[in-house]
Design a binder for these strands. Structure first.
Lengths: 366, 366
DNA sequence: CGCTAGCATCGAATCGATTCGATCGAAACG
DNA sequence: CGTTTCGATCGAATCGATTCGATGCTAGCG
């Protein structure tokens, strides 16, 4: 990358209207009758008395330009109020838009998941560094007509990926995070199964024999996690599917406990699919007088902070930032036309105070 | 809008590689030696034996095309694997990118604010309906070179709006939400001052005379809110600035109480700048044995759900979705070249259980 | 002093569509 | 039956840049 000259900046104070001294007709060549049109590179070239190609090279830096010429061009640009090559034209020529789409389901739900943010942040940082922008693609909109260099499918389990077909037809490179297997896409995943299996072994070591699992909506990672749990607890009870927000989790757990004989769970541990879910479970269990972890151990997934909870969750922590970086890197590779291998990142069992040994039975009678 | 034909969809299962039956050279006119290039509208026109203009009209629907011609063109497109007009070319011609940027500070902090999501959601919905995409512009990246039809500056108080100068120079329409006044931009705001003043009167009615205000980082709305409070409590104590996340609020309140004589606040009410902050304050106050609202009334701002709190916050509720819609509408208007008036939306005082009457002094001695 | 590099510059083709104005034919009208 | 009108189609210009290959000129080399 050679040094790219920046267009002259106008500080806040005079940003609106025509920049000072802009009106067309100043340099030779522009007929005076022309209405003030925003100047093009051709105008700059004419004003600087160089060819269009040279003017272009001055701005792109793709080939050396003599210092004298360069400053003549920049001076002409400044006097005309030229703010740099038109991105639309550049994009057409290059065949790139500089924009990567990311499918995010419904915005309000996607980003309320605290695990989504660090990852999105990492993706954005890597892409930004490469000069690419990140465009949100909510499910309810079709994004035909938007030029995308690549697309990321995140937020696992969405089945309503309306844009997939369009993008696939246009052969837009796609990277799928924690998604089902699709041909022609690159996958970024984490070791769901191994993580939950490790958690399950931990619970087993603590003496737990009867455990329940609080599910999310059906999805690829969800199935993997259940399989991981059943490696250790083949008969684990399924509590029910709920969204990953604290209210939904609380409601689902409430319904579950309501249905249990005597309001006491038939299990000693509850494995949740996110820390948010787990937090909801803890809150609801306590609200009913159950002690955590004495009466019920609760485990989460993700490894995000839950500051409003006064207990550290035992959880399967996933490397969110690294997942984001891997995703973005795969996008860059695919845009560059390189082959990319799928990625499966390791997770880490993180022990907290929300799980503990099974309390010895207080009474012989059930 | 006439009916726009959609490109043929390939279901998941055959999305990668060249669509079946695509190889160039099938119809007359394409020399057989050409390497398989992705087909252009010109190829389709040639295959359908119509002019380029007619082919274009078939896809854009901007002028009527006879049914016979239309189907010939579509058939040719299908057989060539043409997936519709190249968005890059269309954009250049139209002079529009179909992309609107939104400045969001740092992603992880911007979206962790629960008030940001409903608004972003509303913006996105309106823009999507207009066929526009939303592109994230974090502060740390420069988005020169990305073609934007307009830009939204949200997340008040950021001073590091690096992209502003560039966009202003390029005369990209800008809409600022709750921001400082900049020339050439459209403003969307809420009645910060009136809202907090109403809240202050409510506290006064409850008998409060000594109140404190927990600030955010300095910003335009922050100043307005403080002014609103001082309409009623000119001597309100300023507690300190902290970010709008529960942990920061908790820490700030903790430090404040630590510094207070006897660990008891010198006020009877604490006005916060967001519900998240308020939640942090409630949690910390309770942790120290203060009863809310008996010992300390706490009020928030925004009117977002705080499900993990067992008390409803008294708060100044702002119409988040409407703010988003107004913002998006302003963007659409400005893109269309229309003049737009600034908007100030009303807020609503919502009473909850976190504020209450001042308890009568339990003792004569201070 | 003649020859070869190498650098700066230029001309022209190209990216892939949209759209204005013109043309052509057929239907509707008097 | 001649003329007007309207709809469908087409040719050509245009959007605003990037880039390949060619050219001219200067400097270095033997």
């Amino acid at each position: 990358m050679a040094v790219v000259p920046r267009p002259v900046r106008t500080s806040p104070g005079t940003p609106t209207g025509t920049p000072a001294g802009t009106p067309a007709g100043s340099p030779a060549g522009t007929p005076a009758g022309t209405p003030a049109r925003t100047p093009t590179l051709a105008d700059v070239a004419a004003a600087a008395e160089v060819s269009l190609s040279t003017a272009s090279l001055t701005f792109s830096g793709n080939k050396p330009v003599s210092e004298a010429t360069r400053s003549r061009v920049l001076a002409a640009a400044a006097s005309l109020g030229y703010t740099g090559p038109n991105p639309l034209a550049r994009n057409l020529r290059r065949g790139r838009s500089g924009v990567v789409g990311i499918a995010v389901g419904r915005l309000s739900t996607a980003f309320s998941d605290p695990a989504a943010l660090p990852m999105l942040d990492a993706i954005s940082q890597v892409l930004d560094a490469a000069g690419l922008g990140l465009l949100l693609m909510p499910d309810d909109a079709d994004h035909v007509g938007l030029p995308l260099d690549a697309a990321i499918y995140d937020i696992c389990g969405r089945e309503t990926w309306g844009s997939y077909d369009e993008l696939a037809a246009r052969e837009v490179p796609m990277v799928v995070v924690e998604g089902p297997s699709w041909p022609g896409t690159t996958f970024i995943d984490i070791d769901h199964r191994g993580g939950v299996a490790a958690l399950a072994r931990h619970l087993h070591d603590l003496g737990h024999r009867r455990v329940a699992i609080l599910m999310l909506e059906a999805s690829h990672p969800q199935r993997e996690r259940e399989a991981g749990l059943r490696e250790v607890f083949p008969d684990a009870e399924v509590v029910g599917a709920c969204a990953s927000d604290i209210g939904a989790a609380q409601a689902t757990v409430a319904a579950w406990l309501d249905a249990a004989p005597g309001g006491r769970p038939g299990v000693t541990a509850l494995v949740c699919q996110s820390d948010v879910q787990a937090a909801g479970a803890v809150v609801e269990a306590r609200r009913r007088g159950l002690r955590v972890p004495d009466d019920l151990s609760v485990a989460g997934f993700d490894g995000v902070p839950t500051p409003w909870l006064d207990v550290d969750l035992t959880t399967v922590a996933q490397p969110l930032a690294e997942k984001g970086r891997a995703t973005a890197q795969a996008v860059l590779d695919r845009i560059a036309g390189a082959e990319t291998a799928d990625v499966v990142l390791p997770v880490e069992l993180r022990l907290g105070g929300s799980t503990g040994p099974v309390a010895p039975p207080t009474d012989v009678a059930g």
